[in-house]
């Protein structure tokens, strides 16, 4: 198993073990295990580090295991639920500090108008949510204007545009054009995805990035927003 510790802040062997225990608890997808692990870890390292290097690292690992077919969507949600419970326990120690407890960013996600495909987009929404983003999934076959309205309503940092058919790919460009017309393009990052979307298409339609799958969507959202 890859152990994805970035170890922000001062890491030592004791902390490494602490972070690994937290990470493993999240990967186990069991809320009780995460709560117990956080209970033991609390006070032994700054809360922000426990979250970033322990709980969030575990959540990253869950994403990797999902892509590898070792964990499934229910596990991802159970792990996300468990992680939220762990973060909640550390809330009092976080105080005003910025860390993983604060949302990573607000993302509006939807499948463009004329395209009724939902499942891939729903998986991306779930993985983004599980990674700590505030996600507003506005469904499939979404009228262009609805993307703009939701972005304004939620003060979103990013919009995810899905299309599964070559025929509906153009809808992604239409949303980007309307973002420009509304003066929002500089403020809102745009990610495109779906079977016919490609890196070349992302460049051509003026998106900020293209994501091949749900894990990549999370990684690229972090790259763009953090």
């Amino acid at each position: 198993m890859v152990f994805p510790h970035g170890c922000k802040g001062g890491c030592n062997t004791a902390n490494e073990e602490l972070f690994k225990t937290l990470s493993d608890a999240v990967v186990s997808c069991k809320k009780d295990d995460v709560i117990a692990a956080v209970g033991k870890a609390k006070g032994k390292a700054p809360a922000v580090e426990l979250i970033d290097n322990g709980l969030a690292a575990g959540m990253n690992e869950v994403g990797v295991l999902f892509e590898r077919g070792k964990l499934f969507l229910p596990h991802v949600m159970m792990a996300a639920d468990a992680m939220s419970a762990g973060v909640e326990l550390l809330q009092d120690e976080l105080g005003g500090s910025e860390g993983a407890s604060s949302k990573l960013g607000v993302i509006v996600n939807g499948t463009v108008e004329g395209d009724v495909h939902d499942i891939g987009k729903a998986i991306v929404s779930t993985m983004l949510q599980a990674a700590g983003f505030e996600v507003h999934d506005i469904g499939r076959d979404v009228p262009v204007q609805n993307f703009i309205d939701k972005i304004k309503e939620t003060n979103a940092d990013m919009v995810g545009l899905s299309a599964l058919m070559t025929t509906t790919l153009q809808g992604q460009k239409e949303v980007i054009e309307l973002l420009k017309e509304n003066g929002l393009r500089d403020k809102v990052k745009v990610m495109v995805g779906g079977a016919p979307a490609t890196d070349a298409w992302a460049k051509k339609c003026g998106a900020d990035c293209y994501a091949e799958n749900a894990s990549e969507a999370v990684a690229k959202a972090k790259e763009l927003l953090l």
Binding site: L73, P74, M77, M78, D81, V116, D118, I119, K121, A122, I123, S125, T126, Q129, V135, D137, G139
Partner: peptide
């Protein structure tokens, strides 16, 4: 699945932790 079929959309249910 909704809105195309009679059964509630599992994607929506998952996001609401209704596993």
């Amino acid at each position: 699945y909704t809105p195309d079929g009679p059964f509630e959309n599992p994607g929506d249910l998952m996001k609401a932790f209704k596993i």
